[in-house]
Design a binder for these strands. Structure first.
Length: 674
DNA sequence: CCGACCGTAAACACGA
DNA sequence: GTCGTGTTTACGGTCG
């Protein structure tokens, strides 16, 4: 590849020898064509936003987790009369009073909906949860309003005797236990199945229920004191490398969370604090009773216990509060599970993007002998992107090619060989390549883009929207490890594509030639029909003419470029594309800039007049000729008309010289055949 | 099956 | 003559 710099040296005075991926512009900055010689793509920060979202999500999850922990503590404590639990104190306290001002009442369903639909920031989540909690507590404590389920519950409890209350409490606790079981917070021992509890309990007498209650409670407590339950809740570091979790595994099952190092801080310290601080209690903090809606001031722990036993004894009110607290916890858990799932998907998604390249060292050894088509068929079972967020998406080892992740659309995953046919000739977005930049840079995987698309991308990525052939080569080798081999093959393909595609415009100046792209033409996807004479202009006289006019582009498309006006579509296309094409070139490079300005001016002038079909061009407009060349055609509906028009050029140029182009005389006919 | 597209290889021309 | 560049053609495969 080093040898390829010869031409470039000629053109800009500094060789480009960075086939392995160095930064071109540094080497080229001294050249006159420095502006356009850089095909380098600035590193795109593809992951920043995603990571930010993931971080935010994780923060939200942490907050939710903290809230959930506390809620569970409160729930457990409020629902249980076990003496063991009285020694415990919550490590976290929710400032319930903060949110009391919110007048709105959000039903659990609404809250759940909100929580499910949105990714809340930590602050938002916290505020929302606090508000909701506060509201609910207010409602229960005042008995002004209760949600339906609560009303039913309360009516039921009011009609029940103490025995029934016990039964209800037992059911509540069973629900709680079931919930905890689902979450993996509670390990049900073999001899102590929890599921049969429900039918069992219904047939039990209160004393039996109480006994069972105590057993379950103690089991729960014992389980809790180990800290395992809490550790299972810690999501901070666990989800990166794990595969997409199933719904069930999402629910914080400690047995399922084997893949992540469980963060130690919160859980164990909490449980230890409970053990180590006998006077701590989840419902007691800062001298205040933390019973939902209570906030009674208790001078010391003893008075708190007294208060707790007196004011929050087992009655319908406490039961209702407990139940509501359970609802809160459940919703938090649900939200947590969903957020965790979301985070999991996000992390998996980002993980795939960031690490897959290295994880797939020899993803597809399509390198050498396999043809593009073969690789395409192997690599891409499908041609349309699908969401990477689906659990199935990420890594399918063998057949998988690169994971293409689109940010804008984060949706392409897998080896997608994109073929940009004329019908589906959608340009590759910068993101398409950029997002997988690292992958293709490191893995010798054939990019699922056509040469034309890649060439276009290379050109468009360049500051000046123009590259020399050598720069295009460099871009390929720099951006794709795959193109660091078999140079002859793909370089030949590049050249062929440059010549073959209408969208690529060769521009020649005094320093050499470079290639630009007509994006509109590219989107049209038209190729120059094979067998038809094209850009090549063997006419010696013409060459002579070009020699006298360095800015003249050689690859003028055939004679009709000089005798027919541009069609409207072409004009629009040119107006859109040509100016940016040259704008940057005109800056910072005097010579080329002048040339570019001249071309642009000429082009603009031509644009304004082409509709007239008039040959308004003057000899002085010669640079202009250079520009249109290639696009001359292409109104599919009316090829001939499309062909026709372009008179920019000048009678003067329309010299006998061009008549030698008889080879191209039938071009319009051929194009019509398109 | 057909045609368009694509990738590849090759031939050829041209200029340095 | 060699090399880089550019064009054109042929061929086979894929895909709609």
């Amino acid at each position: 590849m080093m040898q390829e710099s010869g031409t470039e040296t000629k053109s800009n005075g500094s060789a480009i020898q960075n086939g392995s991926g160095g930064s071109n512009h540094l080497l080229e900055c001294g050249g006159l064509r420095e502006g356009r010689s850089n095909g380098e793509t600035p590193a795109v920060d593809i992951g920043a936003a995603d990571l930010a979202h993931a971080q935010q999500q994780q923060q939200a999850l942490q907050v939710a987790r903290q809230l959930l922990l506390q809620q569970q503590q409160q729930q457990q404590v409020s629902g249980l009369k076990s003496p063991k639990r009285n020694d415990k104190q919550p490590a976290l306290q929710v400032p319930v009073s903060v949110a009391m001002m919110t007048p709105q009442v959000i039903t659990p369903q609404q809250m759940q909906q909100i929580l499910q639909q949105q990714v809340l920031s930590p602050q938002q989540l916290q505020v929302l949860l606090q508000q909701q909690q506060a509201l609910m507590l207010q409602q229960w404590s005042s008995h002004f309003f209760l949600p339906d389920f609560l009303q039913q519950q309360q009516v039921a409890t009011q009609q029940l005797a103490f025995q029934q209350q016990l039964l209800q409490m037992q059911q509540l606790q069973q629900q709680h236990l079931l919930s905890l079981q689902r979450q993996g917070l509670l390990t049900i021992q073999p001899g102590q199945p929890a599921l049969p509890l429900q039918p069992l309990a219904q047939g039990m007498i209160p004393t039996e229920l109480q006994q069972l209650w105590k057993e379950v409670t103690s089991a729960h407590t014992a389980e809790e004191t180990t800290g395992n339950n809490h550790s299972s809740l810690d999501l901070t570091t666990t989800c990166v490398s794990s595969s997409a979790p199933s719904k069930t595994s999402l629910i914080m099952n400690p047995h399922a969370s084997t893949n992540g190092q469980l963060s130690v801080h919160t859980p164990k310290r909490e449980s230890m604090s409970h053990e180590e601080h006998p006077h701590s209690h989840p419902l007691y903090g800062h001298g205040v009773c933390k019973w939902p809606g209570c906030e009674a001031v208790c001078e010391d722990f003893q008075s708190f216990l007294k208060h707790l036993n007196s004011e929050h004894a087992l009655d319908d009110r406490s039961t209702a509060q407990c139940r509501v607290q359970m609802q809160v916890v459940q919703q938090l858990e649900l939200q947590l599970a969903k957020d965790k799932e979301r985070l999991q998907a996000m992390m998996t998604h980002l993980h795939v993007k960031s690490t897959e390249p290295k994880a797939a060292p020899q993803p597809l050894n399509l390198v050498s002998s396999v043809t593009l088509s073969k690789s395409a068929s192997e690599a891409s079972p499908q041609s349309l992107p699908h969401t990477p967020t689906t659990p199935t998406a990420p890594l399918t080892p063998v057949t998988q090619g690169p994971s293409v992740i689109t940010t804008t659309s984060m949706h392409t995953v897998g080896p997608i060989r994109r073929r940009y046919s004329d019908k589906y000739n959608v340009p590759i977005s910068s993101a398409d390549i950029a997002q997988n930049q690292e992958f293709y840079k490191n893995a010798e995987v054939r990019p699922p883009f056509t040469y034309a698309s890649l060439i276009r991308q290379a050109i468009l990525e360049s500051p000046e929207k123009q590259l020399t052939l050598n720069e295009i080569y460099n871009w390929f080798t720099r951006m794709f490890a795959y193109f660091r081999r078999n140079a002859a093959t793909w370089k030949g393909a590049i050249r062929t594509n440059l010549s073959l595609h209408k969208c690529f415009i060769r521009v020649e100046d005094e320093f050499g030639s470079f290639w630009t792209v007509d994006d509109e033409e590219f989107k049209r996807g038209r190729h120059i029909q094979r067998g038809r004479p094209r850009k090549y202009c063997p006419d010696e006289n013409f060459d002579e003419l070009v020699a006298h006019n360095p800015s003249l582009i050689k690859n003028m498309q055939s004679s009709h470029a000089y005798c027919t006006p541009l069609n409207a579509a072409l004009q629009a296309s040119m107006a859109e594309n040509s100016i940016p094409l040259y704008t940057t070139a005109s800056m910072g490079n005097p010579t080329l800039g002048n040339l570019a300005s001249a071309i642009r001016e000429e082009l603009n002038g031509a644009m304004e007049h082409t509709n007239s079909n008039e040959s308004d061009s003057s000899p002085g407009r010669s640079p202009m000729q250079a520009v249109h060349p290639v696009h001359v055609k292409e109104e599919p509906l009316d090829p001939e008309e499309a062909e026709g028009p372009l008179s920019l050029v000048t009678t003067a140029n329309h010299s006998p010289d061009f008549d030698h182009d008889r080879d191209y005389e039938d071009e319009p006919v051929n194009e019509d055949m398109e």
